[in-house]
Amino acid sequence: MLTTIITIVQLLACVVLIAVVLLQSGKTAGLSGVIGGGSDTYLSKNKSKTLDSKLARATKWVAIVFVVLTLGLSIF
């Protein structure tokens, strides 16, 4: 019964992880953004409050949950 519940929660975490990754905008600047020195602009100072930063933080947490659930399933 426990493995069924963990499997269902893992599937939900998988779907949420896919959705969060797809909602993020692409990082097209690449190396030219680093060389260009655009990090001192007004928009980069408030970067922690943007939707992309919230999605990046959500991606990290959902990925951690997914990995922990996967390890838990492999133990059981």
Rank of each mutant, 00 (worst) to 15 (best):
L55D: 01
N46G: 14
V9L: 14
T4M: 11
L31D: 03
V15R: 15
L23S: 04
L31N: 08
V67A: 08
K60W: 06
G30T: 02
L51I: 10
K60T: 13
F76G: 06
V65N: 02
G36A: 07
G72Y: 02
V21L: 13
K27R: 12
A63V: 07
M1G: 15
Y42E: 07
F66S: 02
V62T: 12
K60V: 11
T41E: 05
T41P: 02
T41A: 05
S32P: 00
A29N: 02
L22F: 11
L2C: 04
L12N: 02
S39I: 14
V68M: 14
T70R: 10
N46H: 02
G30L: 01
I8Y: 14
I18T: 11
G30Y: 00
S32N: 12
L2D: 05
A58K: 01
K47Q: 09
K45Y: 13
N46W: 02
L23W: 11
W61N: 06
F66Q: 03
M1H: 09
L17G: 15
I64F: 11
K47D: 08
L43K: 14
K54R: 15
V34E: 02
T59K: 09
I5H: 13
T41R: 14
I35P: 00
Q24G: 08
G30H: 01
I64E: 13
T50G: 02
G26V: 10
V15S: 14
T59I: 04
A13V: 03
L51R: 09
I5S: 05
V62H: 02
S74K: 08
I18E: 05
L11S: 15
T28V: 10
F66V: 00
I6H: 05
S25A: 08
Q24W: 00
T4Y: 13
K47Y: 14
G37D: 06
L73T: 03
L43E: 10
T3E: 12
V67I: 09
T50P: 00
G36W: 07
I75Y: 15
T4D: 15
A56T: 06
S44N: 09
I35G: 03
S32I: 12
S25I: 03
I8N: 13
T70L: 15
L43N: 09
L23I: 07
L17D: 06
I35Q: 01
K47L: 13
I5M: 05
I64K: 00
L23R: 09
L31M: 06
L11Y: 15
A19C: 08
T7W: 08
I6A: 13
T3D: 14
I6L: 13
Q10V: 14
I35R: 02
V21T: 09
